[in-house]
Simulated assay, not measured.
Amino acid sequence: MWTYKTFDELTKEELYLFLKERSAVFVFEQQSPYHDIDGRDPDSIHISYIEDGELLAYSRIFVTDNGNIRIGRVLVTEKNRGKGFARTLFRNTLTYCQEQYPEKAIELNSEEYIKDFYASFGFKEIAEPYLDSGVIHVTMLLE
């Protein structure tokens, strides 16, 4: 079931699942040591699909200092890839952003290899690629 929750609405179990899978994907799987716990979770909306206590897909959004909406930590757990969850997760995330914040631009930082996925939703690159924690990224925007 898809859920959209503020930090205060999360259960301890949900928060644990999110942090565990974010670490598994972004730190271990991608071999990219960085500080996942960045202080933004308390200000974020956490979008997830959990079935039988297992996290299948997750993203978070928050309002940036410049007033845009930032989508981040987009993931589908390893054993659930190839089942269409990525596109469904991102479509749900984007729809939520557009419904809740219709006047705001939406930004994200994409790993370079997957930028075409985000471009298929209308995102445009707005800066040159850059290296972040050993992975090449591009900044993208949807106005």
Results as ranks from 00 to 15, higher is better:
residue 27 V to R: 03
residue 103 E to W: 01
residue 125 E to Y: 01
residue 122 G to H: 09
residue 92 N to I: 01
residue 96 Y to T: 07
residue 102 P to I: 08
residue 25 V to R: 00
residue 46 H to F: 08
residue 25 V to I: 15
residue 108 L to H: 05
residue 142 L to D: 02
residue 85 F to D: 01
residue 133 S to M: 01
residue 18 F to Y: 14
residue 20 K to I: 02
residue 84 G to D: 14
residue 136 I to D: 12
residue 96 Y to N: 03
residue 18 F to G: 04
residue 62 F to N: 12
residue 108 L to F: 05
residue 22 R to G: 10
residue 76 V to G: 07
residue 42 P to G: 11
residue 143 E to N: 13
residue 2 W to E: 12
residue 86 A to N: 02
residue 142 L to Q: 03
residue 111 E to Y: 01
residue 44 S to G: 13
residue 64 T to M: 11
residue 62 F to R: 08
residue 55 L to P: 11
residue 20 K to C: 03
residue 121 F to E: 08
residue 76 V to R: 08
residue 116 D to C: 02
residue 33 P to Y: 05
residue 18 F to L: 15
residue 132 D to S: 12
residue 1 M to I: 03
residue 119 A to L: 03
residue 86 A to G: 15
residue 68 N to V: 01
residue 7 F to T: 00
residue 8 D to P: 05
residue 141 L to W: 11
residue 66 N to T: 14
residue 134 G to Y: 05
residue 78 E to R: 13
residue 84 G to Y: 12
residue 93 T to K: 01
residue 76 V to F: 12
residue 68 N to I: 00
residue 51 E to K: 11
residue 97 C to D: 00
residue 66 N to E: 15
residue 106 I to L: 06
residue 70 R to C: 15
residue 124 K to H: 12
residue 19 L to I: 05
residue 68 N to S: 09
residue 117 F to D: 12
residue 92 N to M: 14
residue 112 E to Q: 04
residue 10 L to N: 14
residue 91 R to H: 07
residue 121 F to P: 06
residue 124 K to D: 13
residue 30 Q to N: 06
residue 90 F to H: 05
residue 119 A to F: 12
residue 56 L to W: 08
residue 133 S to F: 00
residue 36 D to E: 15
residue 64 T to Q: 12
residue 97 C to G: 03
residue 5 K to V: 02
residue 31 Q to V: 00
residue 115 K to Y: 06
residue 35 H to F: 04
residue 102 P to Y: 07
residue 68 N to G: 00
residue 23 S to R: 10
residue 82 G to R: 10
residue 49 Y to A: 02
residue 32 S to D: 05
residue 119 A to T: 15
residue 59 S to D: 10
residue 7 F to H: 06
